[in-house]
Design a protein around this nucleic acid. Structure first.
Length: 564
RNA sequence: UGCUCCGUGGUGUAAUUGGCAACACAUCUGACUCUGGAUCAGAAAAGUUCAGGUUCGAGCCCUGACGGAGCAACCA
């Protein structure tokens, strides 16, 4: 029986890991494993990138290999230094380390240029003088073969001369390109004499104005892997069809048996959000969110600010796996992952979001008791703390009802509840605002014998509420975040713009929330469980005089479900 | 109507490479609880897109349908 259990728990590996294991077993690359994570510095990293990062760094780590960080900076028009720092920060935060191996595609511009010259000499590349439109129309369509460029048979010497002049800035942008000479009739569009170099006069953030001619991604990526000795080039599914082209280049370049092996996997799609960098940038530019690190964004900096931990994100990535099926993963699995992690780590505290004042009429005025409260029932080592209790306390508005439905285990006229860690109180009466009709104050009596931990504390009541002593409370701003979109796949609707699905209540800002005094000295990114409510994280903009907390995720709420 | 890839509970993944379809999330019960959290116990939910074939035996191999995704940027 035990044996069976063990067998069942044997972890299965992804198809990619299986390939790696097999390659290692066969002794390929002398048992070496070397991967790389190749972001383009044109935006912030999101959780989809985390999936790639975990694989690239994870496989190297697990099998005693290395993983390079390489910025794919082949297009100076779109890329900015600003992004490089954020990308590095996010990778480190996630828990991975490229050590000294920080590279740039631009490190290889010289080698790539030489290789292009080499291709020209081998009559495998030519300069095309046609416009983008003409070249594009000659490409054909996926169902129709393309036609050859009139410049395809240009003599080597002329090609060489023109290519050098392109790089010397003698021609306008767009006037000429260098193309690989492959096959205009193959069904694979990427092999139809792809453009490999274009003229760009915008200075590059690293190489300045040294180059006037820049390699296309397809001409750089595979070769960079080759130059770096990458053994396994892991990338997403959409590059599958590019693989024959990469192989074609490497076959022209390689001098031995070594050749990177590209393996493609499914990109991460998360329900109720989107991963398109372009669209995320639009959200930022159109101020639909406060920035790249808005806690509603699926970016790593957004998730960080939201209160997610690297452990939770890695755990989530681990749970979803790597396959070749295009899938949409349920956000609730991500939420499960943070709850699981924060449940163990986050200290419990009392915070009242929408305060309702309780006056304990038989409690002596001016008296203050310090009650001792466990910081985390999941982890005894986190100890206890003292929380002041007094005659007037705040409870959650939702925790009182004048006419409670069946199974409402909270406060209502004549009902008893425990104030967690303190006393059992009974609701005797309440005061209503004459104009609005809203309940303003609730009057209770307490039973002095029921103090937690005391002799009569065994007395049972059905409900336990969190509370904050009114005179000791800290005022705080609390931001309740919810899903940015109210459609499961906002960017996947052909007839509707994703903006149509922005969730109007994705952010609710609450002010005048009441927190227990132990929360006075907190710093950004500190995480807590506000008892019975959810996990909250101190925002970057938080100060001692104006504390701000972001809700990471609510606790599971069975009552909310019953109530629906 | 070309090429490439992919079809397993609601969702995401497994299935010792041909041997009674398993796990997680979500859902629903119940127990416990000084968090309507956590924890614990349990339930419902796919017969593996379909049709043939090989085989004692097919989710897995073969054939053919059907369905989905990707591919025609001087983007990556």
């Amino acid at each position: 029986m035990l044996e069976e259990k063990k067998e069942e728990l044997k972890p299965s590996v992804s198809f990619i890991e299986q390939f790696i294991i097999d390659d290692l077993k066969e002794g390929k690359n002398n048992g070496r494993i070397h991967t790389r994570f190749p972001p383009e510095p044109n935006g912030y990293l999101h959780i989809g990138h985390a999936k790639a990062i975990c694989l690239d760094f994870g496989m190297a780590q697990k099998y005693g290999g290395k993983c390079n960080l390489r910025f794919d900076d082949t297009n100076p028009v779109k890329e900015e230094v600003e992004y490089i720092d954020s990308i590095k920060e996010d990778i480190r935060w996630l828990g991975f380390d490229w050590e000294i191996r920080e590279y740039y595609a631009s490190d290889y511009f010289g080698k790539l240029f030489d290789f292009a010259v080499d291709l020209i000499k081998k009559e495998l590349a030519y300069v095309d003088d046609q416009s983008a439109d003409i070249i594009s129309s000659q490409k054909g369509t996926p169902t129709q073969p393309g036609t050859e460029s009139p410049f395809r048979r240009r003599p080597v010497k002329e090609n060489l001369d023109l290519f050098y002049k392109m790089n010397e800035g003698e021609f306008e942008e767009g006037s000429r390109v260098l193309r690989a000479k492959i096959d205009m009739t193959t069904p694979n569009m990427h092999m139809r004499d792809p453009i490999i170099y274009r003229i760009i006069k915008t200075p590059h953030h690293r190489t300045g104005s040294k180059w006037m001619v820049y390699p296309m991604y397809d001409f750089a990526h595979g070769q960079c892997d080759y130059f770096e000795g990458i053994t396994h080039s892991l990338c997403t599914l959409e590059f599958e069809i590019h693989r024959p082209l990469y192989d074609w280049f490497i076959d022209q370049l390689k001098t031995g048996d070594y050749k990177p092996r590209q393996i493609e996997f499914n990109r991460l799609n998360l329900s109720f959000t989107m991963m398109s960098k372009r669209k995320l940038l639009e959200l930022v530019q159109e101020s639909k969110v406060s920035g790249w690190d808005d806690p509603r964004m699926p970016t790593l900096c957004g998730l960080r600010r939201r209160g997610y931990t690297p452990e939770a994100i890695r755990r989530f990535i681990d749970l979803i796996g790597y396959t070749k099926v295009e899938a949409i993963n349920d956000v609730s699995l991500l939420e499960h992952a943070v709850r699981e992690d924060l449940n163990i780590k986050a200290p419990r505290v009392f915070g009242v979001l929408e305060p309702l004042k309780i006056i304990i009429t038989n409690y002596p005025e001016g008296k203050v008791e310090e009650v001792e409260i466990v910081n985390n029932p999941e982890d005894e080592s986190m100890g206890t703390r003292k929380v002041p209790f007094s005659r007037e306390v705040y409870i959650e508005k939702d925790d009182f009802m004048e006419n409670p439905p069946h199974k409402f285990f909270r406060l209502a006229p004549g009902m008893e509840v425990r104030l967690k860690g303190a006393y059992i109180i009974k609701c005797e009466n309440f005061k209503r605002n004459e104009k609005s009709g809203a309940i303003e104050e609730v009057y209770c009596t307490y039973d002095p014998l029921t103090r937690s931990g005391g002799h009569a504390s065994e007395k049972k009541v059905k409900g336990t509420l969190h509370w904050v002593s009114a005179q000791h409370a800290i005022d705080a701003e609390i931001r309740l975040y919810d899903r940015l979109f109210d459609h499961e796949d906002p960017a996947g609707q052909k007839d509707d713009d994703y903006r149509k699905f922005l969730n109007p209540s994705s952010l609710k800002i609450l002010n005048g929330c009441k927190l227990e005094p132990s929360l006075r000295h907190v710093k950004p990114l500190d995480k807590f469980q506000f008892q019975r409510l959810g996990y909250f994280c101190v925002d970057y903009g938080s100060t001692e005089s104006h504390p701000v907390f972001n809700r990471t995720v609510s606790l599971k709420d069975t009552w909310a479900k019953i109530n629906k």
